[in-house]
Design a protein around this nucleic acid. Structure first.
Lengths: 300, 300
DNA sequence: GTAGCCTGCTGCATATTTTGCACCAGCATT
DNA sequence: AATGCTGGTGCAAAATATGCAGCAGGCTAC
């Protein structure tokens, strides 16, 4: 919407930290952009940006104002989707920040289901770790977050949470594969392919190890779950994953999984959340409902 | 703020119900105003107004959009007052819708106190009955409402409530003045000067009467409490008022008051409220706190 | 220490947008 | 049928936004 253009521009400048840089991406001259900012600042009677030799930085007032801008922009989206709803066509865009485990199977499937009912709805899905996901919500660059073991700061409003026990993934021919539940101490005899420390699964494992005064020594460490699975398929190593992150074709890959004993590593929590107090666009709200139903159906 | 001008205009058009009429008060030509509306409608892809031969009326989409507009406008006020707060000067404007009883003594005094601390804050005070006050909140034409016996629809969020017993007001020389608590049946022997039915006090009295299968026969009826007091000062009539609505100089007027027996007429409730879910501007929020403290101090 | 490079900012001519006037068509009231 | 209201449109004038060229000032690298 045109009347919010300047506000969009300010948002962009704040993100980039430079008027000239932002102008380039915004298809506008730095002159014009600069003057729009000056005009707004005059209207407000306060400087939104501190001018530094290297660019600009939000002032205290700017922080407040920018938050207001983002709120307005997201509100407008909501209103537009409500209006579209009136006309019967469900349109809109849903931005999601989520843990890697969700990308494997769960989200693609859920999005396909939703889009088959509402083809006009578009999606953005961003991989974000537990901290970054909450930041994305606060900045309104994401409508929904699906996070495993979130940090849960005050801005994160949980819509639903399900327990996710940690599972061991290994080759079908692995010596441990004949046990139905696997103890942590048995794992230590094998090379470990662990996700990097930013991930919730690793967090749980590290916590459990520290409680026993141990330190996990990963033979292979990666921030990519697919790579870890491939690594496990290639040797007699073990990796760890939560059920929702396991691909449906696990067996076809020659892999299998077993639950880790809960007395060794307690189950983690997968939480669906939004920015506290925000009223979501219709589409995002309905998609959240769908996800919640799916989670309940599958894990409770 | 200039970028919201069109939205302000739309608000005005919606209130007046005519583009030409609105244009007159907005210091703009109907042409320009009309085109601004058309432009917005094109951006939204929906008609905001239904065009009637006699003017315009909000469409369903318009209702949603207008609510959004009012929300935005009031949000901006809040943001501006937050920013002003940053600079140390408490500025802003507070709009209040309230029952008549509050106008006599309580509000003028509270506003004077607040303004002595924050002279840059300005006030609008509107007399609104119980229904209209809540409408004013919903339309965001008022930030706060102080209502006696509110209807309490869902949009009304109570910040605080205090009980207010109904009092009888009469001349100091009145035959009933020697009783400390007055029974309803004793009142019926005298001419009654009653507030009109829209008022909470009258509502309570009517309810009490109906419970006894009576119907109150007012000798004098008025929507102005000051007039009612003067009427009572002029003859041996009785009028009714809640404590907060009694002027401080009651005795100086030759009048006095007694509590009405609570078994006859139960105390009513005076409630301070705001629009549910709305975040008030800083000034309004602080003023509300002050009022709450004052009410607690005086009536609890 | 200075030359180059980046930053935000400004004067002025040029595009673009917005506005107001005059006028049109449609409906309601008289 | 006449009048008076409504919103809507073509066109020229006014107002606004833009882009270019060039400014001062701070950082960085040689």
């Amino acid at each position: 919407m045109r009347h919010l253009l300047t506000l969009r521009f300010i948002d962009a400048v704040a993100r980039v930290g430079s008027i000239r840089k932002a102008a380039e991406t915004l298809a506008i001259t730095s002159t014009a952009l600069n003057r729009r900012i000056l005009a707004i600042e005059e209207e407000l009677g306060v400087e939104i940006f501190e001018r530094l030799p290297t660019g600009v930085r939000l002032s205290a007032a700017g922080e407040i104002f920018l938050h207001h801008i983002r709120q307005q922009l997201s509100d407008l989206e909501r209103v537009k989707s409500q209006i579209d709803d009136l006309a019967g066509e469900r349109r809109g865009h849903i931005a999601i920040a989520c843990s890697q485990a969700l990308l494997t199977d769960f989200l693609p499937k859920q999005i396909a289901i939703y889009r088959s009912a509402h083809p006009a709805v578009t999606f953005s899905v961003y991989l974000r770790d537990r901290v970054a996901a909450e930041k994305a919500l606060a900045e309104m660059s994401a409508d929904l977050a699906l996070v495993f073991e979130p940090v849960e700061r005050s801005e994160f409003q949980v819509l639903h949470s399900v327990q996710q026990p940690v599972c061991v993934v290994m080759k079908q021919s692995h010596p441990l594969a004949d046990q139905s539940v696997i103890r942590m101490r048995d794992c230590l005899a094998f090379p470990l392919a662990l996700p990097s420390t930013a991930y919730g699964v690793r967090h749980l494992l590290d916590m459990a190890a520290r409680r026993r005064l141990l330190k996990l020594q990963p033979a292979i460490e990666s921030d990519n779950f697919e790579f870890l699975r491939s690594a496990v398929a290639a040797e007699e190593a073990l990796t760890f994953q939560i059920p929702i992150g396991l691909p449906a074709n696990l067996e076809a890959l020659g892999l299998t999984m077993r639950h880790l004993a809960e007395q060794d590593v307690p189950p983690g929590v997968l939480e669906v959340g939004q920015l506290r107090g925000r009223i979501l666009p219709v589409a995002a709200s309905r998609f959240a409902e769908q996800i919640l139903r799916a989670l309940i159906l599958r894990f409770e």
